[in-house]
Computed example of a mutant assay.
Amino acid sequence: MPEMLGYKINTTGKKQSQRRLETNIKGAWRELGVFCDSSPAETKGEARHRCCQQSPSEREGAERRATEALRLGEKGGEDADWKSCFQCFVDVQDSLRLCSGHILTQYNIVNVDSCFKKLDHIFNTNERVIEAGRVGGGFDQTLKEILDAEILPMVKEFDQKQNYDTVYERRLQTAADNFIAAASKLPRVSGCFPPCGFQSAGAVYNCITCKYDSCEFPLDCPVEEIEIMEKSKSKMWCHVPFDLPDDIEVIWRFAEKVKTEQMDEFREVTAGVDRLYSIHSTGLQHQGTYQCEIYSGGRSIVRLYFYITVTPQVVTGHTELQEIFDLSLLPGGQLLPAPGGSRSSNLPLLPLLLCACLSTSLLLLFLSLGALYWFSVPEHRYPDEDSDEGGDFMSE
């Protein structure tokens, strides 16, 4: 019986609660005319007369007990763990008034059980209705207004009146189609963006649970690895693909020389609203893990991690020079051609260069030998000078 009303009873370990709930609902609905099937001792006509000929006070008391029984099922917890789309927006009392005059054409008797089965089929288990209800935040109230506009006029029209099941079928199906058409035009959300973060803006309304489904991602994002050269400027941007509230607070933390996501290893370095953290001249002491945590209203929304590896500048310079030297040599120890030239254009110049170097070396050798010979020859006096002097002495 409870399942026909759109509630699924959680019976695990709670058999007595289930039986008590079913007894309350059946007893109240029997007084209202739900179970108007004839007993072995009476005809169908007598059963219909017994169920439908009640005083206003008797009917009011039965409605009150039926309402309380239904609300017990609505509360969930011990006795129920599921709700349906129709129950999200339509009041229990309105449902009772809507179905109180439902007549089975085949037997010409009032049977509210069949009415609730129609509601389940047309609204509660209808995938098109559920999908139309998947709207963004804040539009669940609009869904209620749309459904009330379709159902409440029927409640007012059918209250205390009897109508055949074919009329109910036609009118309820039209109401469901109108709800689908109107609800489908409401704004949708882009949904959830993996892999992390509490994304309330991406949640969509679930007509089965009567609440918004949150994006079930962890707060901690995967660690992003960054390699940076010493004395270079490094930047870390705390960016997420989903929309953030306006009242955010950003806290940056640092765990020196380790790659980690353990909160107790971090120390706070700055707090405010700036999602950009930069280091003007990165040193070896800056190597480690940086954490950016975004808060809103005192609640954490997301945590991002950046692991920075710093390469020393000396090692970097040596490595770059070695790479340049290796690239400059061709196989066989030959040098690369000059820019704009080809390797073949340099080959005829090599013999000329070798000849010039050899000629210069030989010239320097001969000049050196000549200089040595010149300085090694002794000084001699000439005979003419001596004869002149002797001649002058004899004339005197």
Rank of each mutant, 00 (worst) to 15 (best):
L352W: 05
L98M: 02
G45S: 10
H121L: 15
Y168E: 10
V34S: 09
Q285D: 14
K257A: 14
G317F: 14
S55I: 03
A271N: 06
C215H: 06
D113P: 03
L98Y: 08
S296D: 11
V223Q: 03
H102S: 09
S345Y: 04
E42R: 02
D264Q: 08
D91P: 09
P245S: 03
S55A: 10
T316A: 12
C292F: 00
V90M: 04
V269C: 04
V112L: 06
A62P: 05
L304Q: 02
N126S: 07
D264S: 14
D165H: 13
S361P: 02
K211D: 13
C52Y: 04
N108F: 13
D113V: 10
R65F: 10
F375N: 09
A356R: 03
L70K: 09
P195K: 06
F198G: 02
G138E: 03
E3Y: 12
A80H: 12
F325P: 02
T319F: 15
R50F: 06
A47I: 03
I308Y: 01
R343N: 14
I103V: 15
R128N: 07
S55N: 08
P2C: 13
L358A: 03
D177A: 11
F193G: 00
Q285K: 12
L186G: 07
D220F: 05
N24M: 13
G202S: 02
V314H: 05
A255H: 01
K259Q: 14
I301Y: 02
L327E: 12
L336Q: 12
D113R: 08
R71D: 11
G317N: 14
W252D: 00
R275P: 00
R64H: 12
V310H: 08
D384N: 12
V110C: 04
E131F: 00
L119V: 15
K235P: 01
S95M: 14
D120R: 14
H280N: 13
F193E: 01
I208T: 15
T311P: 06
I122Y: 15
L353Q: 08
R275Q: 02
Y295M: 05
P378V: 06
T270Y: 04
G333W: 09
P378H: 08
P194Y: 14
M236H: 00
F179H: 07
T209R: 10
N111P: 03
G333P: 03
R188Q: 11
R65L: 09
K211M: 11
Q160T: 15
A69M: 11
K211H: 12
D165W: 05
I324S: 08
H49W: 03
V34T: 10
S281D: 11
N178A: 07
F393M: 08
A203D: 09
A181M: 09
D243R: 08
Y164G: 15
K259E: 09
G33K: 05
A338Y: 01
F366T: 07
S38N: 12
L244D: 00
D159L: 06
D81W: 01
D37F: 13
Q162P: 01
R71L: 14
L321E: 07
Y7T: 13
K15I: 15
R59A: 06
R50M: 13
V155I: 03
K14S: 14
A176Y: 05
E293H: 00
A132G: 10
L186I: 00
P348Q: 04
E63V: 07
G77L: 06
Q53A: 12
E157Y: 15
S84N: 14
S278T: 05
